[in-house]
């Protein structure tokens, strides 16, 4: 620091300068990682490896530990049972039986929830009625209504659909309604500005604006319905033993997935129980990743309403 350049006020004054950007060379700006690093950074690959390791441990444990196949079958026995069930016993038919019930229940349930919420948007009393109903009925496990449903609708799909409806309507209505209520005042005013009213206002402004919440409701509704259905089929399985009702009558293949699990259990065919559970997981993952993930990707993610 030379003395001359310090001004009287003590500031160190130095010459101005301007750089020509890009004229000079730059160092290593970007370098590819090594092959191994790149491969181990692939998420699905790592998870898949872990899956395989777990399967190997399972197989070894069941074999070396000499566990009774009745208690805990090996992976290979489960795999064989699964293939056998798929090819010979028509396991897919059972899956379809379950899905059919589930889908019709889901569709009807969502429509009823939609009607309830639309009525609630219109007036304060409607809104109060809906919140009171959902607050009361949402904490009630749908399966607990099954005994009453069997009394009202008999031992059959009617009773199951009724319980499914109950498991879907309340979470969907609850989340949709609270989603509507938290749509920002600005967006509401924008909607009014376009002259949108009534149903057009609901479907063109409120529904998309509340979509993250609606999607959550749909997901919870699905999760409850899937669990309720499996449980209901298990209960019917129990019924079959003492009343030999119509659902899984001997010889026919009209039962669902839950019933198959129950029946295999009763007949001490544990590998087939595992095969059934495997199908349950598969259906669950397909719905989550194939359906909900896809919707989410195409809507709330794309619109930036929810971070990745």
């Amino acid at each position: 620091m030379s003395d001359q350049s310090v001004t009287s006020s003590g500031v160190y004054v130095r010459p101005e300068f301007e750089n020509e950007i890009g004229a000079a060379g730059t160092g290593e700006v970007e370098r590819r990682l090594s092959m191994f690093e790149r491969i181990s950074n692939i998420d699905p690959l790592r998870k898949f490896t872990i899956l395989i390791i777990m399967v190997v441990i399972w197989e070894l444990y069941a074999r070396i530990g000499e566990i009774n196949e009745l208690m805990f079958p090996t992976f290979s026995a489960t795999g064989t049972a699964l293939i056998d069930a798929l090819v010979n016993a028509g396991l897919l038919v059972n899956v379809w039986n379950s899905l059919k019930l589930l889908l019709s229940g889901y569709a009807i349930g969502i429509s009823i929830a939609a009607v309830l919420v639309i009525l609630a948007v219109g007036s304060r009393i409607g809104s109060d009625l809906l919140t009171t109903l959902t607050a009361m009925l949402n904490p009630l496990p749908a399966i607990a209504l099954l005994p009453m449903a069997m009394l009202w609708f008999g031992l059959g799909p009617g009773a199951i659909i009724f319980t499914l409806l109950h498991s879907i309507i309340w979470p969907v209505a609850l989340n949709t309604h609270s989603g509507f209520q938290s749509v920002s005042e600005t967006l509401r005013m924008v909607g009014g500005n376009y002259g949108l009213k009534g149903l057009r206002y609901i479907f063109k402004i409120l529904v998309p604006a509340a979509f993250p919440s609606i999607l959550t409701g749909l997901r919870i509704g699905w999760a409850y319905a899937w669990r309720t259905l499996i449980a209901a089929e298990l209960v019917f399985g129990g019924q079959v033993v003492d009343t030999s009702g119509q659902l899984g009558a001997e010889g026919s293949n009209s039962g669902g997935l839950g019933w198959i699990i129950f029946e295999s259990q009763m007949e001490n065919q544990t590998p087939y129980v595992f095969a059934g559970l495997f199908m349950v997981i598969l259906v669950g993952i397909t719905v989550e990743n194939g359906f909900f993930r896809n919707i989410e990707e195409k809507t709330v993610r794309k619109w930036g309403m929810q971070k990745a």
């Binding site: 790592r46 998870k47 208690m71 699990i261 129980v273 559970l277 349950v280 997981i281």
Partner: peptide, 26 residues
């Protein structure tokens, strides 16, 4: 983290009640 991710992805979609027959066996 990967183990947790894999396990939850597998078991989260599995209704716990469907394990009841096995649980009663065990």
């Amino acid at each position: 983290s990967d183990v947790l991710g894999t396990l939850t992805a597998m078991f989260q979609p599995l209704p716990a009640i469907s394990l009841l027959p096995l649980a009663m066996l065990w």
